[in-house]
Design a protein around this nucleic acid. Structure first.
Lengths: 123, 123
DNA sequence: ATAACTGTACTAGGACATATAGTACAATTA
DNA sequence: TAATTGTACTATATGTCCTAGTACAGTTAT
């Protein structure tokens, strides 16, 4: 499921956060489902529980998860995702498109890729 | 031109790197033009020259700039940008689109935004 | 030729983020 | 009751980031 690169420059808690977010948006973890407990996931990844907790706090700030003391942490509904997160995504999209255009890719090609994504994974 | 947030969590050398890359892809710094010298830019931004050098090294690894000892650093041609950088952009594009779709945005809307970008900047 | 610039490469040190280890407590579940 | 859950601390080690200073070779301007 989750893969870690301990020699990667990115902090572990960010890798875990992004990995869990990806599991959610791909449907691997449906909304409402329980996420692994802090200690369980820490054991599986062989890292400290505090690091996992930090990842969960970050996911909660984005609106992708919510935690209940004594019960566990769960995947939230797409509607609960923060507006701040959406603005971040739009900003990232614009920046990436602008750079791809500078590199010579046509806007039509980029738009086509946005439509066809999921059909063909290659290239 | 370049703006820095010293209280931002992102390292200064990354902010400078991204800022210069943006100046290049927006055409503010045309290909072949000279970038500010390490010491000059460091003086303008009131930071250490070593930090600027680190930003230039990063830009050079991406293919956005090249440096000549004694002469200076210059903006490269779009053709010289690394294939690695292009793959990074495609990966970022796919991830952003996938997340936006999960949040309920239609692929057609996303594609339209890719096409119209630059016309309307608002929202 | 001299002086001033350029990129580049070091050393050293401080400040800060990251990750670990350990402990503890209240709420929930078996 | 016992085990699990999220959460909150303290303390420590490590690495990154940034600064400061110095130095050297190549280029440019005077």
């Amino acid at each position: 499921m989750l893969s870690l690169n301990l020699r990667d420059s990115r902090p572990i808690y960010e890798q875990v956060r992004d990995g869990l977010r990806r599991l959610i948006i791909t449907g691997a973890i449906p909304p409402g489902d329980k996420l692994p407990s802090v200690r369980t996931l820490a054991g599986q990844l062989a890292i400290n529980p505090n690091t996992i907790q930090r990842s969960y706090e970050a996911l909660e700030r984005e609106g992708y998860a919510y935690s209940v003391p004594g019960k566990g942490s769960f995947a939230a509904l797409p509607q609960d995702v923060t507006e701040k997160r959406r603005r971040e995504l739009f900003g990232q999209l614009d920046a990436v498109v602008q750079e791809l255009v500078y590199l010579g890719m046509g806007r039509a090609e980029i738009a086509k890729r946005c439509m066809d994504e999921g059909k063909e994974e290659t290239q």
